[in-house]
Amino acid sequence: MSQSTEFATNSNPNDDYLPSNLSLPTYIPLHYSLGSNFNKILQSGSRGNDLTPQALKQHINLVNQYIDHIISNDSLDFNENILNNYLKTYKNLIISKIKLSQIEKLSNETILKQYISPNLNLNLTNLDEYHQSVNPSVEEFISSKENELISSNYQINQFIKSDKLYQLLRSLTFIMKNPEDPVPDEDNDDDDAIGISGGKVSLKDPITLNQFVEPVITSCNHTFEKSSIQQQMLTHRYGPFECPISGCDSVLNSNSFKIDKLMKARVKAFNKMEKNKDDDLDLVN
């Protein structure tokens, strides 16, 4: 018997059915036994396991209590370090909330569904088919979504700009040293709407021209002294009336007002600065 005949006789017939490429493909589906665990991780936030919403709620309550306590006590002033810490923590919680919500959305992606529940489990008979797959690896897919969704600074910034408490905290940290200046990058660019005159924010009631003591802000974003706007309501027998600001056609009623915390903080910061100036002059004299 020749050497070539002997080799053919001893060869394994199963070798004819082996894939041409025995290396692991780039795209490998998750084993079916691990699919449910993978899904639980992706959807952990929606199933109540995420502590971010609870932490965010507690932080909001704490911040509001602090602001209201300082605002309601004339002898107290805001602490810059406390405000900055509240602001930083609040922003981080908002970012975490947005990122976690984006991660949850990944579970609805077709590629991940195929990864978790593949039509074909990987074996020798379909190894070549997986080698030819155009699907990215799960790592590549999640990384691409991280850039596209999770790390979307634009979405985070848009949310922050529309969040009233974040903007209030940010404004409070600024006006402590600049009580008469408009806050930079304010959402509302209409100077008239935020009471700016000559580049400064007026700290006086537009009706009486006296400095604010109990400022209230209207639904049309104009600020008045509480007693003077109440007099306006009394004049109209507490019925609807037009905003006293010239050129504003908004119709107001008793439900159109709320405490203007930012204006009250401005007046508090301004009076403190004026007092410090007087004290300095007394020391010089």
Rank of each mutant, 00 (worst) to 15 (best):
S2F: 13
S2H: 14
Q3D: 12
Q3W: 10
S4K: 14
N12V: 06
N12I: 10
T26F: 09
I28E: 03
I28M: 15
L30R: 10
S33R: 12
G35W: 03
S36Q: 13
Q43A: 11
G45K: 12
G45M: 14
S46C: 07
Y66S: 11
I82Y: 05
I82M: 08
K88M: 13
T89K: 09
L100N: 15
L100Y: 10
S101W: 02
Q102R: 14
I103T: 10
L106A: 09
T110G: 03
I111Q: 06
S117V: 08
N119A: 04
L127H: 06
S133V: 06
E139V: 04
E139W: 04
I142M: 13
I142H: 10
S152N: 15
L172P: 01
N178P: 01
E180T: 11
D181Q: 13
D185F: 13
A193P: 01
L203T: 00
L203G: 00
D205R: 01
T218A: 15
T223D: 02
F224L: 04
E225M: 06
S227H: 10
I229L: 04
F241C: 07
C243Y: 00
G247T: 09
C248F: 06
C248P: 03
D249F: 14
V251M: 08
L252C: 04
K261F: 00
L262D: 00
K264Y: 00
A269H: 00
F270P: 00
D282W: 08
